[in-house]
């Protein structure tokens, strides 16, 4: 995917020079390997810092919430779906945006890669579908496919769903992937086993809220966990408080989550938080035939009412 970089720069310079947009949001190289940072380019010189590779896993839709003015934004499949979600939730207007679409072949998982090596990783280089990871006294080349973030291995919308211009040719979508394999596994457990599964899953959580901050859906001016009048949830590390945060965070993403994986990527403890949102995504698909962010003309299931909505749970 590194070959997109030149095209991204070319398009960005053009739309800035034409005055079509006031800034372009993309990625620049991070200060440590595998951690590209969001970059807001406003001039031709700062456009030169833009890069594209397999470390662009954050979701750039996070940076357009309530923005004024015109913005160019680089969007892989999942970003474009979150942009669509922003537009239907009135967080930005479609005509403020110039979307530079990037057909995606997946992002690599820094948690997984760091766990493979005992010593510090100093460089990660990419060439086609090969990734070379090196540090002091070691260097290993692996297939990118083996290193993908879990959400990317089951992604079925790698091509942007909404764009003004593409930075590369469309890629083939993955077929025959079971998007919800992990959820189905948990569904088959007993209530007790489920409880223990999620207790274990959340036990390392330090409530840093990086997962919330990385998610484009979490744009409330004051998050319920930060409110103190009234205080909705305890601020301690008590497992009940931790779980309350996670259940509510996930539920606030119901029918909106695009499974972009930014939350998991941002988590310093490597917690698989998508286990919560995935269940809700699966339910949305099964109950309402809905996948988030695919169309600007359809309202999401939780803000529409249909007389044939499933309601067996209400007595």
């Amino acid at each position: 995917m590194t070959e997109y970089t030149d095209k991204i720069k070319e398009i960005s310079k053009r739309v800035l020079a034409e005055g079509r947009v006031e800034m372009v949001i993309g990625f620049r190289k991070g200060s440590v390997p595998m951690m590209n940072q969001p970059h807001l380019a406003t001039s031709a010189e700062s456009v030169d810092e833009l890069v594209w590779d397999s470390n662009c896993g954050l979701n750039l839709a996070n940076y357009i919430t309530d923005k004024k003015g015109t913005i160019g934004i680089i969007a892989k499949g999942c970003d474009s779906r979150n942009i669509v979600t922003h537009v239907i939730e009135n967080k930005i207007k479609r005509d403020q945006l110039y979307i530079i679409g990037v057909p995606c072949t997946g992002m690599i998982d820094h948690h997984k890669i760091n766990a493979m090596f005992d010593s510090e990783i100093l460089t990660v280089e990419e060439s086609g579908d090969q990734i070379t990871i090196s540090g002091n006294g070691f260097s290993e080349t692996k297939d990118k496919q083996e290193l993908l973030q879990e959400n990317c291995t089951v992604c079925t919308h790698r091509n942007p769903v909404e764009y003004d211009e593409l930075a590369g040719n469309l890629v083939e979508e993955q077929k025959n992937v079971d998007q919800y394999a992990s959820v189905t596994k948990v569904e088959s457990l007993s209530a007790d086993e489920k409880w223990n599964y999620f207790e274990d899953l959340l036990s390392p959580c330090i409530r840093c809220y990086a997962c919330r901050n990385a998610c484009p859906l979490c744009y409330c001016p004051t998050c319920f966990v930060d409110e103190s009048r009234p205080q909705w949830v305890g601020k301690s590390q008590d497992p009940t408080d931790v779980k309350t945060f996670h259940l509510l965070r996930a539920y606030h993403c119901a029918g909106r989550c695009t499974d972009c994986g930014a939350c998991e990527r941002a988590c310093p403890m490597g917690i698989k938080i998508r286990e919560f949102t995935k269940k809700l995504n699966k339910d949305c698909q099964e109950l309402y035939g809905w996948e988030a962010g695919l169309s600007l003309d359809e309202r999401p299931p939780l803000d529409t009412f249909k007389t044939d909505d499933p309601d067996e749970f209400i007595k």
Partner: peptide, 20 residues
């Protein structure tokens, strides 16, 4: 919501919804 909470291990039968 019910599906979701029961998915995380809340015992079925503890959560009830009604429209009154």
């Amino acid at each position: 919501m019910k599906n979701f909470l029961e998915h995380t291990g809340i015992e079925p039968g503890r959560l009830h919804f009604s429209w009154i």
